[in-house]
Design a binder for these strands. Structure first.
Length: 495
DNA sequence: CCAGTGTGTCATAGT
DNA sequence: TGACTATGACACACT
């Protein structure tokens, strides 16, 4: 024995809250009757609460705990966007989640972050050229425009050392002192040091990493090791030796070679990539400079900044010269601001090249295309030791650049991933905000539905003389969209 | 003295 | 096959 009141509620069928049959069915107890059936109704006052709970369940279906897309848990961005589109709420899912941020999480980032990176590399008037120089990589590779920097990126920037080139004067002063006052026995060390320190791990200096990373870079002029009186051995294991030798050698090396190879079509840049000191910094070299027609003197506009820098710093030290010739736009080296390993004194390969009198600059050895390099080798008569050294220098130099590029890419990847993470976090926050708004709207709908249910039931009960209270019935929708009031007992009460 | 960082170098795999 | 590149690992210098 069952009773049900199936009341056609066409006039309520367009109710916004009831318009979705699936949602209504989802939480309503359907009893055993089909929409078309007319179950009989059995009065049971204890069912009132259940009925009300079922009504509440209609809306609770929207917010199943495990299905709440706004849970602050890890999610796939695309899935989150899809879930947003399925809400069916007033917030149009088609709207971009973020300004300039489509549903595809990769889109906004790919559009914005590379721009930031590009802007970074364009930043300033010398950022890009400096970028190719290892000495300035740290300073330039993390210089995106701050307008587009995410907070974590700012954190990265916080660690950047953007101090000017003159912040290493103390170190330079130490070098100066070393130059002026060589350590006791230093000369003896210089004479006794073997010419080739194979165990030395000091890197190539090469004027701070030739700009070969970019094919379009102009191959810079460099150092050649010929025509010097330096035939003694060199060891980078003796700091003072390196300093003193550095002071003695660099002017020679820097100004002695104006690469005039017949096949040479490479023009030296205005500022040689080498870090050799200007002549005024080392007076006892000026004789050599005059005799050998320093190439830099052919470019007084190049030398002027260096000299100016020297005057400003008042030391004329290698470090200052380094800053002058390596550029002054931004940080030149690592955060420590100290010369990289092998950059201060002559590097191992530089000393070897000097010792073996390699007749062309290391920059050429490293940067020339292989064909030009081989042709260059044919222009000179080199013994096996020289050939081996030249090829080793070329290999190490290229690998050095490769390592720098590799590290640069690593760093860029880290920065990019950090940017992606920020984008995802922003998307998550946006979804959370939308979810909160959705919950508010849902509460309104639920309230409205409750009121509507009471109203409909009261109307039906009054019109049809139904004997029971609201708790005895639940709403049910037929295939044609009409709404039935179904009693919890299966007795049909009528349509 | 130790940890962290930057750099050069080597070995190796891939192109 | 040689040249080149990319990258992990290591050592070293320096802070």
């Amino acid at each position: 024995m069952c009773a049900a009141v199936n009341c056609v509620l066409h006039q309520r069928g367009n109710c916004e809250a009831l318009a979705n049959p699936e949602k209504i069915h989802g939480g309503v107890s359907m009893s055993s009757s089909s929409p078309g059936s007319r179950p009989h109704h059995v009065p049971q006052q204890t069912e009132m609460d259940l009925t009300w709970q079922e009504l509440m369940a209609i809306t609770e279906e929207f917010e199943a705990p495990g299905e709440n897309p706004f849970e602050p848990v890890a999610y796939h961005p695309a899935e989150a966007a899809a879930a947003l589109g399925g809400f069916g709420m007033s917030q149009a899912p088609a709207e971009p989640l973020l300004p300039g941020c489509g549903t595809n999480p990769a889109m906004p980032y790919e559009g914005s972050y590379p721009e930031a990176m590009a802007a970074c590399q364009r930043m300033g008037n010398c950022a890009e050229p400096l970028y190719e120089r290892p000495g300035v990589q740290v300073g330039s590779r993390l210089l995106p425009t701050t307008n587009s920097i995410q907070p974590p990126l700012m954190n990265v920037l916080d660690h950047m050392d953007l101090t000017g080139p003159s912040d290493r004067n103390p170190a330079m002063e130490s070098v100066c002192r070393a130059q002026v006052c060589p350590m006791p026995g230093q000369e003896e060390i210089l004479k006794q040091t073997p010419p080739d320190d194979l165990e030395s791990d000091s890197g190539l200096s090469l004027g701070s990493s030739p700009p070969v990373a970019s094919p379009g870079n102009v191959i810079t002029g460099g150092t050649a090791y010929m025509g010097t009186e330096l035939t003694r051995g060199y060891s980078d294991r003796e700091p003072m030796e390196g300093t003193v030798e550095h002071g003695r050698m660099r002017p020679n090396l820097f100004y002695s070679m104006d690469y005039q190879h017949p096949m040479n079509t490479y023009s030296y840049p205005a500022a040689p990539s080498s870090y050799y000191p200007p002549p005024s910094s080392l007076p006892h070299f000026q004789q050599h400079q005059r005799l050998q027609q320093p190439s830099s003197l052919k470019h007084p506009h190049v030398l002027a900044p260096a000299l100016h820098d020297l005057h400003l710093n008042g030391s004329g030290l290698p470090g200052n010269r380094v800053d002058s010739f390596r550029g002054t736009c931004g940080k030149l080296k690592g955060a420590a601001g100290m010369p990289a390993r092998g950059e201060g004194p002559l590097s191992r390969d530089e000393r070897r090249a000097l010792a073996l009198k390699i007749p062309f600059p290391l920059d050429k050895i490293i940067n020339l295309p292989v064909d030009d390099f081989n042709e260059l080798l044919t222009q000179y008569t080199l013994n096996d030791a020289q050939l081996t050294l030249v090829r080793d220098i070329r290999r190490r130099g290229k690998n050095k650049v490769a390592a720098q590029n590799c590290r640069k890419r690593k760093l860029e990847n880290i920065v990019n991933l950090e940017g992606e993470l920020n984008q995802l976090r922003a998307q998550r926050d946006h979804l959370m905000r939308e979810g909160a708004e959705y919950q508010r709207n849902l509460a309104l709908v639920r309230h409205h539905l409750s009121d509507l249910y009471v109203e409909v039931f009261s109307q039906l009960r009054d019109e049809q003389g139904l004997p029971y209270s609201l708790d005895h019935y639940s709403l049910q929708q037929a295939n044609d969209g009409s709404i039935f009031l179904v009693s919890h007992n299966t007795a049909e009460l009528g349509e």
